[in-house]
Amino acid sequence: MEIKQTLKSLVSIHSITCKEEDVAEKFMQMMKEIGFETWKDQIGNGYTKLKTPKTGAKTIMLTAHGDESGLVVTGFTDEGFVRIADWSGIDFKILPGSEVVLHGKKCNYPGVIGILPPHLQKPGDKKAIPESKLYIDMGTDLKETKNRVDIGDHVTFRRRFTELLGDRIATNALDDKLGVTVLVELGKKLMKRKLDVNVILVCTTREEIGADGAKRAALEIGPDLAIAVDTCPGEQFGLSGSPDFEPFAKDPVLEIGPMVAEKTNKALEDAAKRVNLSFKRTTWWGGTEADQMWMAGLGTNVGVITIPIRYLHQPVEMVDLATAENTVSILDEFVAWLDSDMKEIL
């Protein structure tokens, strides 16, 4: 499965928010091989472009963010343990017993987040261990620890690409390397088409801390339509039927509401129908790049498509790749259908 290989390549790269260079590079390299034009900006966004021969054609931009959530080193203990804090959206409850990677001065180092010995754990203790009491153990003394890392260095989770049953994968940072993967696979398909619009696919930065990357992209490119491809919480154990969670392993999700032009959404749904697929509609979430792109001047010429995944912001995020593949097919059909003046939408 090609999409699996692309995803595997992308998730193997550590790219904590504010340190996304490597993944942007990889994205641009993949797209270059496909045949897109590539460049990057000062904030680290990786842009790729497929120009249409039609003169005066409009531009559609699709974004997916390359940054992932992680931790930061805040200090050391006398014995060489490393104190940490959340950097971009990690639930500290998942940390005890986790294997992490510290991005040190010269290279990366493995570590484990420690727990209290069994005889000191009070049974029935309902409070989670607070972040301030957590630490990373690299098995080193203070001298060696300080040799390796500094205050301010970043920490991500150890990489695992786990193939479960069927097309289901559990791996790190599906949010939003899955979206970047969709862009790459979309790029491959679009190369085979005769397009009437300019297409720009962007691997953006800093989504987890306010989507500055997307804002910058919107301002720089000024597209006529921008669609963010991201992930959303999918139904998982104990949370089926809850309105906050989307059905898992089924349709990609289309966000509706006053901030998205209904015309865009209808056009996307029609595209889906033409390839025998569909979307699930859900009301506007907020918390994706579309917010920033809307505010950067695009107004309602934005759209949001998300793929439901389980266990968001954990190193075991899980997706059914069939949903991702379907998303690629729908977007391929949609972009190919667009006229050079996009009048059905704008």
Partner: peptide, 20 residues
């Protein structure tokens, strides 16, 4: 292969966030 996953932090309310 299997995974034990939790609810995303975005979906937890204040009490949930600090409880085991």
């Amino acid at each position: 292969k299997g995974v034990l996953g939790m609810k995303a932090p975005h979906n937890q309310d204040h009490n949930e966030y600090y409880a085991v």
